[in-house]
Write a protein that binds this DNA or RNA. Sequence first.
DNA 1: CCTAATCTCTCTAGTAACTATAGCTTCAAG
DNA 2: CTTGAAGCTATAGTTACTAGAGAGATTAGG
Lengths: 142, 142
Amino acid sequence: MLTIGKLAQDTGVKVPTIRYYEQIGLLPEPGRSAGNQRLYGQGQLERLRFIRHARDLGFPLEAIRDLLSLSDRPDQPCAAADGIARAQLDAVRARIRRLKALEGELERMVAQCAHGTIRDCRVIEVLGDHALCAQDHPAAAG
Amino acid sequence: MLTIGKLAQDTGVKVPTIRYYEQIGLLPEPGRSAGNQRLYGQGQLERLRFIRHARDLGFPLEAIRDLLSLSDRPDQPCAAADGIARAQLDAVRARIRRLKALEGELERMVAQCAHGTIRDCRVIEVLGDHALCAQDHPAAAG
DNA sequence: CCTAATCTCTCTAGTAACTATAGCTTCAAG
DNA sequence: CTTGAAGCTATAGTTACTAGAGAGATTAGG
């Protein structure tokens, strides 16, 4: 049996975050010691590792909730899990595309800076007028 | 003089967002009509366009606050503005790097899915065991 | 066995950047 | 003059945590 601190160490998830996951129902309530401290077993450890890894891959908690409930039903077809992963992949790709457009615009902006005064600053000028942008970059959105 | 709705139309910033910007002091409090409705002039319009554009480029509001106060001092050197833009560029590049690593891992995960049952699902399996990852991908963080 | 240091407990509030809702007032058009 | 859109304030919700207060539990050393 692991205390919450040990569980945190073993998974790399911080103690308050573990309690938060319990609070939102992502982790089941664990047993308690005589002194009311949480005690975790192997199953909880693995579940938390799963959560941690999915978070590292950028899955939102709601997607992880779905993935966890899927993983509890081994006989079901895995199409749903596959769909969630594909959706996440699409989201990641979309973000990369957007960020690359921003990168280009920021590069241009910074490259044109003549290091003079604010009055002649391209950074400020471009920010004030979107028409000065090379392409019609999209919004950043995350 | 523009009403808040017209200002929203002209800038692409939603009405509640404009009020929010006022609340946090990013936009000065505008004058009011006899009936207590906000009325904006050209200066406010340009200021909001500036904010909108910077947000689209992913600058956090605090950075925008700094940029705005810089743009009010045309005689100052533009090194500070340049620095803020460079920092944003660095942040964007870092996020692209991280996301590319995630993209690779998610691609691998999805490609290996045999479309069978959850029991044999690579998606679930890989999420449960970070050691199955190709590289040591970093955390997503945004 | 006692004490000090470290953990853990609950609860509340704060973060970024909005978005949504409720219940009201004002304005513009017909 | 009436009706519907737009505006007002204030509060709470979103995502995924993080920080803090103040109290109780546990463990290591003496």
